Structure formats: structure tokens, C-alpha cells
Simulated assay, not measured.
Amino acid sequence: MPDLTGYSMPSVLALFLLAALLVWISGTRLAQYGDEIAERLQLTREFIGLIFLATVTELPEIVTTFTAAQVENAALVLGNMFGGITMQTAILAVADFFAVRHALTSWPRKPTHALVAVMLIVLLSALLAVTFIGDRALFSHVGIGAICLSLGFPVVIALQRGFDQKASWAPVDLPDEDRPSKARQRADGTLSECRTQVLVLRAGLFSLLILGAGMVLALSADALAQKTSLGGSFIGASLLAAATSLPELSTTLAAARLGAYTMAIANIFGSNLIMLALILPADLAYEPGPILSQADASAQFSIATGIMVTAIYVAGILIRRTPNLLGAGLDSWLVMGVYLASLAGLYLMN
């Protein structure tokens, strides 16, 4: 992998910002394509958000995790993954602030979002337990905990699909469905002229663009961690996590503006599940030993805050009519408060 540590600080920052811009643009377009593909193939927006958008928008995390693990920067890997969970959940709060008429958690019509979030909390709790007791290698340098946690994603998807088909829970007192926004109407007018094959091809091209930009983000963040005194854990949980979460931010905001609120929520929860699945490839790339054994207090703190913000949104989904405060749900304000407090805590711990 190229080494950017020899470049000057302004050059590294310029590369970082350029890659972040490319990720933002690509993420916005992918939300529009995903919404149109869901309409044409008669797929639910929850499924598109949980599978398609979540997987594509996680490409920067996949690249940065694998790249940082190869250069044996365990603090950056774990900080990016675990800090990214809190960061990505806070993206829902940003969408609630700027792109939603009612509280975001008032919109889901099915209980599957709550189910996925609860399973995410279970997996995060198991992850936190593994970091306390330490991971043990099953073969070579790959840990048992990494293997088990990575299997959680397909299990949750299977549960979600099965529960979605026979759910008997019916929410009441829901806000009226939004009419298609002007952004949605403009997007439909443009994309409706494209064939489905062309849409899929464009989505693939933007996915590759995110992939390449994600590698640049990882390398530049590693260089910044070495050139500053902030350390890999703080850089990973703040700067790198924020940059690699730009696809989630752009796609979530775009989906919310299109009125696809359930796709936006599923995108974030699905991305966080994939983040846990990345532990296994990170463990494979990190040769000194099981990477979870390198989890320090900062990583454990990030996992704990990830559990907190996910639980807050579970409560919001179950309450349905979340109280509004200055145009956003109370749960979103609490999530944003936890995220900002987590950054302050990580800074103090370094």
C-alpha cells in the first residue's frame, strides 16, 4: 500500500478532503438509484436500505479497515469501526434535524426496524464482553470472537426477512404519509428515462468510486494519526469515522428528502451491522494476533456509546409519537448529545 507519511500535512489534508468530497457525491446519487430500483423491482425500501445501500455505503469502512489492519494500526481499525457505529447512528439525528417533517422514528410502519436494532444491541453487548475477557485464536491469528460476531449479520438478515413476512404488530396513531417531495419528483423525472440496466451500471460505477476514495481516506487518516499527537483511537473514532460515514450521511439525507424514511433508517442500522461483520476481515489482515485483543478503553467506550444511541432509537420506534423539540424528535437530540459527549470522552482519554 502507498505510504502517505512522507507527504506534508497540507498535502495529506487535501487528499483527505478530496476523497471525502467524492464519497459525498457518490452517496447522494446512490440513494436516488436505490429508491428508483426499489420501485422498479417491487422491493421494499427497508430491504434496499438494509442490503443494497448499507453494503455500498460501507465500502469506505471495508477499505479503511482492511488497509489499516494491513499496516498493523489496530487502534485506528478499532476506533474507526466502533466509533463509526455511534457516528453513523447520529446521522439519523442529522436527517431528523434537516429533512424530516415529524420525528424520524414516527414513520416506520413495521416492527422490523426495532427488531434489527435490538439484535444490533445484542451483538454490541457480546462484542463488549469479548473485549473485556480477550479474544482467543481459533486458527493462525484469527480469533473465535471475530468469527462469531461476523456471523451475526446474515443471522439478523434472515430473522428480519422472516419476521417481516409474518409480523402481526400493527402501529397506530401514525403521521400521514408525505407526498413525494420536489426532489423526488425531479429525480423520478430524470431517472425514469433510464433503463434498469443503466441504473444498475451507474450504481456500480459510483460504488467503485466510493471504494477508491475510501482507500485514500484510510491512508491519509493513518498519516494524520502519525503526524499529530491525537493518536489512532481518537483519529479513527472522529476524523476517519466521520469521513467514511459520509456515504451514510449523504444517502440518508437524500433518502429522507425523497420521503423514503424507512430506507434511511434501515441504511444506518444495516451499516452498523456490517461494521461488526468487518471484524473478521480485519482479523484476517491483522497478522500479530486476534485484533479484538488490542481493544483498549477507548474502543470499549465507543462500543458502550454505540449501545446507548441504538437503544435510544429503539425506544423512539416503540413510543411511535416521539416528542418534538425544535423540529426534531427528542430521541434524536439525545443521540446527538451522546455522540458529542463520546467525542469529548475519547479526547480526554487520549
Rank of each mutant, 00 (worst) to 15 (best):
L4I: 06
L4R: 06
G6F: 06
Y7E: 12
S11C: 07
S11E: 15
S11W: 10
A14H: 08
F16R: 03
L17W: 08
L18R: 00
A19I: 10
A20L: 14
L21M: 14
L22M: 13
L22W: 09
V23K: 02
V23R: 00
I25M: 14
I25W: 13
S26W: 04
R29Q: 14
G34T: 13
E36R: 14
E36W: 04
A38W: 05
E39L: 12
R40F: 08
L41D: 12
L43V: 10
L43S: 08
L43F: 14
L43M: 15
I48C: 03
G49Q: 07
G49P: 05
L50A: 14
L50D: 02
L50C: 03
A54V: 06
A54G: 06
T57N: 14
E58M: 01
E58R: 09
L59V: 12
P60Q: 06
I62R: 00
I62C: 03
Q70S: 01
Q70G: 04
Q70I: 05
V71H: 05
N73I: 00
V77W: 04
L78E: 09
L78A: 07
G79E: 03
N80I: 00
M81S: 00
M81N: 12
M81G: 00
F82Y: 03
F82R: 01
G83M: 05
G84H: 08
A90S: 12
I91R: 02
I91W: 02
A93N: 03
A93R: 02
V94H: 01
V94W: 01
A95Y: 07
D96T: 07
A99M: 08
R101H: 09
R101Y: 04
A103C: 10
L104W: 06
L104G: 03
T105Q: 03
T105K: 08
T105S: 15
S106G: 04
K110S: 15
K110L: 14
T112Y: 03
H113P: 03
A114V: 12
V116C: 14
V116E: 13
A117D: 07
V118Y: 09
M119W: 11
L120Q: 12
I121G: 09
V122W: 11
L123E: 07
S125A: 15
L127Q: 06
